[in-house]
Amino acid sequence: MTLSNVPKLVTVFGGSGFLGRHIVRTLAKRGYRIRVAVRRPDLAFHLQPLGNVGQISLVQANLRYRNSVDAAVRGSDYVINCVGLLHESGRNTFDGVQEFGARAVAEAARAAGVGLTHISAIGADISSRSAYARTKGRAEKAILEILPDAVILRPSVVFGPEDDFYNKFADMARKAPALPLVGGGKTRFQPVYVDDVAEAVARAADGLVKGGKIYELGGAEIKSFKEILDDILEITCREQRFVPLPFFVASLIGKVSSLIPFVKPPITADQVILLKSDNVVSKAAIAEGRTLEGLGIKPTLAAAILPTYLQRFRPEGQFTQSGSAA
């Protein structure tokens, strides 16, 4: 086999996470060789069956250590960074991972002379009061300064079989006597299917996405937080009361729960700040074609996917009669 016939090598930082594994699978179907850069390669062997023998390799890399980032990028033809944090823990801070780490990946890609796709989030803003959104915004600015042709993708809430959104509240509906409506449940979301986001990433690796732009990826429908909870209850065949939770109360709960060691907080004060703003594709992105539709991808309806993995939360699982409730 000549060198020109060797499939291109794509390095995926954070490839073992929820979105990352779907990106890896989509790239593998296209025939790419994939180098998955993760902190714990020994915990990422579940990725290898997503491709052919030898197609997916695992390497150790930590975005807080530049040498490991450079080593992971070396020899690659393209780089994808989908590392992100929902909440800080120990040394994994928003500043360290989402800003410093993203800058390190961009600098490594520039040094290697290869392209980059970076996964950000709708709401990224260097002026935000939320540390999550602020570091996402700073990362975007730094990346475009380092690599002006980089592709930046901002998804809304991403849903799919292993998501930490619909699954979280479906499990809460199964265990808790009531569901919280933070801020009255009025915040609007545009949930996007994980495979649609992965397809957008793969098209960028294919060279089909114009660089130097920030794309906003939203699903087929815009729904309020309460409407999303209503959908979850309908799919899981449960009846549940709602308890309005003012933002200041939710923030207090987040601050207190974050102080408890070794316990994942149900919500953080930073997430409460995010819930004060809608998480939907902007009018500017729609007008300029910086959306899934603009990339030629038809958003998947949540109603077509959610029952396939939320049915396990029904009182009798998949055998629950439609319309019955706990």
Results as ranks from 00 to 15, higher is better:
A104W: 00
L179N: 09
D195M: 15
I122G: 01
A170L: 10
L179I: 13
I122V: 15
T187G: 05
A131N: 09
G123R: 04
A124E: 05
V192N: 01
G184M: 03
P155E: 12
L147Q: 01
P148H: 06
V197I: 12
Q190S: 02
F94E: 04
R174V: 15
M172F: 15
R103Y: 03
A142Y: 05
H118L: 01
R110E: 10
T117D: 03
L147H: 00
V192W: 01
P180W: 02
L147K: 01
R188W: 12
M172Q: 07
A176I: 04
K141V: 14
G96S: 13
G137E: 05
F94I: 06
D195K: 10
A133I: 04
F189S: 02
K141Q: 12
V192Q: 02
R138Q: 13
S89K: 13
K136V: 08
S89A: 11
A139S: 13
K141N: 14
G101K: 03
A131C: 07
P148G: 07
R134C: 09
I119L: 14
N167C: 11
P161M: 09
A106D: 09
S120Q: 09
F94K: 04
A170P: 06
S156Q: 03
V194W: 07
P191S: 10
V197K: 00
F94N: 03
R188L: 15
A178Y: 09
Q98D: 15
F189I: 11
A108M: 08
A124W: 01
A133E: 10
V197D: 02
T187F: 02
V158N: 00
V194R: 07
E145L: 07
S127P: 01
K168C: 08
I152C: 04
L144S: 07
L147Y: 00
V197G: 03
V157N: 11
N92I: 06
P148C: 06
T135G: 03
G90M: 09
A111S: 10
A139T: 06
F165K: 05
I143K: 00
A173W: 00
Y193S: 06
P180Y: 01
V114H: 04
S130E: 11
A111K: 08
E88W: 10
A142L: 12
D171A: 15
G137I: 07
A104H: 10
F165G: 09
L153P: 04
K136C: 10
Y193H: 13
N92W: 12
S127G: 07
K175M: 10
V114C: 09
E107Y: 03
F159P: 02
M172A: 14
G160N: 14
G96L: 08
D164M: 10
A112Y: 00
Y132H: 14
K168W: 07
D164Q: 11
R91P: 08
S120K: 08
S128M: 14
I146W: 00
V158P: 01
P148Y: 04
V158F: 05
A139H: 05
L153G: 01
E145R: 13
R110D: 08
A142D: 06
T93Y: 05
A111N: 11
E99D: 15
H118C: 01
A139R: 05
R129S: 13
K175P: 01
A102Y: 04
A200S: 11
P148S: 04
L179V: 11
G160D: 10
A131P: 00
I119K: 02
F94M: 07
R154C: 02
F189C: 04
F169W: 15
G101S: 12
P180M: 08
P191N: 11
E99K: 13
T93E: 04
R138P: 01
E140Q: 12
G137C: 06
V158S: 03
